[in-house]
Write a protein that binds this DNA or RNA. Structure first.
Length: 579
RNA sequence: GGGCGUGUAGCAUAGCCUGGAUAAUGCACCGGCCUCCUAAGCCGGGGACCGCGGGUUCGAAUCCUGCCGCGCCCGCCA
């Protein structure tokens, strides 16, 4: 527990000096306890053994007896097995919790003023959004919220796939279907069949394929009518994507769309600059750069293709253009790419080339916030090409329907529009939390049941804790806005334990942000909700007969509620007052 | 073949960066708890050679190394 360690350091400093150990870097030894029963923080003394030529147990005993009197207000000190253990005293926990309660930011400092571009979501026009997009969208949204809360200036960048050779066939298919019919199909979200139909014709119909290729040339040449048709495809797709975003409740809007098409004008600049810096080489007819450090199957240097032999650009070029734009137009300090792990090498190469070519320098940091693949139950990567597609739209609807029936069963008094709102928060929250609560770089298996489960370490469990607190407030006669002035005084072990979890919030959030790992915040919030549930069972809040106790418990409830609300809010998950 | 990643109870995960004590959590399983602020809950219980072998260390799930399994990437798709 970082707070406790900080508050104990001066006493340790005194004692260590007294024991002649001031210069050996003992600060690093003091850390959070690994076993909660032993305390909140601990210092293993085994490594001091050699220095002092005494047993670890002896040393721990001596430190313990010297430091105990100094830490009376902070922690109970004990020693066992060569460890000095600190267990925060209830009064210390009470006062720390009180100070968090009176702070609207719950102790979270404003962390800086960087300008950060977060590249996430990135669906492809005329293609179904799949579970991979869900991950990117949900993780990216959470990171954006947290970074903004910390005080950074964040540019949301939705790098939509709205350009490239497939658009030739898509436009021709659009014409074959007729614009209205096609727009209708796309507008209702039947993207995949549209794409597949076009694809089938492209491979089986030579005449269609020829038209498609010509259409690509027209598109790239800026032909007005072709651009208009392209715009229809993009707009109809975006309408559908926006519907999904709206269901998901993410921050993305049309203003955040920075599709590949946007960077087209910059592509020649990329080539020119790479050429000027002498990095561009011709290989097998293509313009390439050799980043170095990668080899192909034959052991030869692996190139990054900038301009294909047919003159077309590919995605590396586009990503380089993005970097130029984000450095020079947006003046970003940092770029985050919330994109799946399979593209790891691609980004490493792009970043390396961008640095070497001077598109960015030491002031800039570029981070691939990678995430694992979504697998099917056989452990294979879930693919939208074969088999049935899992439409995000359907997944989210299903989640809300399930939440609705769960509420109907468990709280029949909640009805009408209010129930629908709650069902939406619960169902969507469950899906998002399932995605956010596991370490993002790991693959995970897609299972309806698991994703929509409302038990255990899930959003509904956290939301439920919040709803119960709100229920207490409703029953209580007083003004909720006055609670932050109430004094917290932990007496029961469940009260102390709840406070002990609550005070970890600021460091948990900082850790979450610095590692871009939302699951760490989830873990923290779950531990809070869990401690609250135990507290709730053991400690009657209202009508305990003692006004000071009631006020203290109300204050613990308030801090818990605020923390759940803020924490879940930063994850993009809503907190209903009833459920 | 090269590179990167991953392997923790029946299942799913956290802990690994920054080494510390009895490896934590959820699901499932077993046993208790609703005249009492929402039982989507609580309390208790069983269940793990932390992939395998070496090494470093007083101490390894954690660091290094070798092997094995799995996944991804390795030239004109993004």
């Amino acid at each position: 527990m970082k707070q406790l360690i900080d508050d104990s350091l001066p006493a340790f400093s005194t004692v260590m000096k007294e024991m002649g150990l001031s210069d050996i870097g003992w600060e690093g030894l003091l850390g959070p306890a690994t076993v909660e029963d032993h305390g909140d923080a601990a210092m293993p003394c085994h490594s001091l053994s050699r220095e002092l030529k005494r047993s670890p147990g002896d040393i721990a005993d001596e430190i313990c007896s010297l430091i105990s009197p100094l830490l009376g207000e902070v922690a109970i000190v004990s020693s066992i097995n060569g460890f000095v253990n600190l267990k925060a005293v209830p009064s210390w926990l009470s006062s720390k919790a009180s100070s968090l309660l009176s702070d609207p930011r719950i102790g979270v400092g404003e962390g800086g003023r960087l300008t950060i571009a977060v590249d996430y979501s990135a669906p492809n026009v005329a293609k179904e959004m799949h579970v991979g997009h869900l991950r990117s969208t949900v993780i990216g949204d959470a990171l954006v919220r947290m970074l903004e809360f910390k005080g950074h200036l964040v540019h949301r960048e939705n790098h939509v796939g709205d350009w490239g050779t497939p658009f030739g066939m898509l436009i021709e298919h659009l014409l074959d279907l007729g614009e209205d019919e096609a727009a209708n199909e796309l507008g209702v979200g039947d993207l995949d069949s549209f794409y597949k139909q076009a694809r089938v014709k492209f491979v089986s119909d030579a005449e269609f394929a020829d038209r498609s290729r010509s259409r690509v040339v027209l598109l790239q040449g800026g032909d007005a009518e072709t651009l208009r048709l392209w715009r229809v495809l993009v707009d109809e797709s975006m309408r559908y994507f926006n519907e999904v975003y709206s269901m998901l409740g993410v921050l993305l809007t049309d203003d955040d769309i920075m599709g590949e098409s946007y960077y087209q004008d910059l592509l020649p600049t990329v080539v020119e600059r790479l050429s000027n810096s002498g990095m561009l080489e011709n290989s097998e007819g293509a313009d390439v750069v050799f980043p170095g450090g990668w080899k192909n199957r034959d052991g030869e240097p692996l190139p990054m293709i900038i301009r294909k032999a047919d003159g077309g650009f590919n995605y590396s070029t586009s990503d380089l253009a993005c970097i130029i734009d984000r450095v020079e137009r947006l003046e970003c300090d940092q770029f985050l790419y919330v994109v799946g792990t399979p593209q790891k090498q691609h980004f490493e190469m792009v970043f390396q080339v961008a640095r070497k070519a001077g598109f960015m320098d030491d002031r800039h940091s570029s981070i691939h916030v990678n995430f694992g693949s979504v697998l099917d139950t056989d452990g294979r990567v879930l693919k939208s090409r074969e088999g049935e597609v899992i439409k995000l739209h359907d997944l989210l609807s299903e989640a809300v329907i399930r939440a609705n029936s769960a509420i109907e069963e468990k709280n029949p008094e909640l009805i009408g529009e209010q129930r629908n709102n709650v069902a939406s928060m619960v169902g969507i929250g469950a899906v998002k939390y399932a995605d956010l609560s596991t370490e993002r770089t790991k693959d995970y298996v897609f299972e309806w049941e698991k994703m929509l489960s409302f038990e255990g370490n899930t959003a509904p469990y956290l939301q439920y804790a919040h709803a119960r607190i709100c229920s207490i407030f409703r029953k209580w006669a007083g003004e909720r806005s006055e609670i932050p002035d109430f004094e917290i005084s932990c007496c029961e072990p469940e009260e102390s334990n709840l406070a002990r979890r609550l005070v970890r919030f600021p460091s948990a959030l900082d850790e979450t942000i610095s590692t871009f790992s939302p699951h760490k915040l989830c873990t923290h919030l779950h531990s809070v909700a869990s401690a609250f549930a135990s507290f709730y069972e053991a400690c009657q809040v209202l009508g305990s007969g003692d006004e000071a106790v009631e006020k203290s418990r109300l204050a613990l409830c308030e801090l818990t509620a605020k923390q759940l609300e803020l924490g879940l809010g930063l994850l993009g998950i809503g907190v209903p007052e009833k459920m």
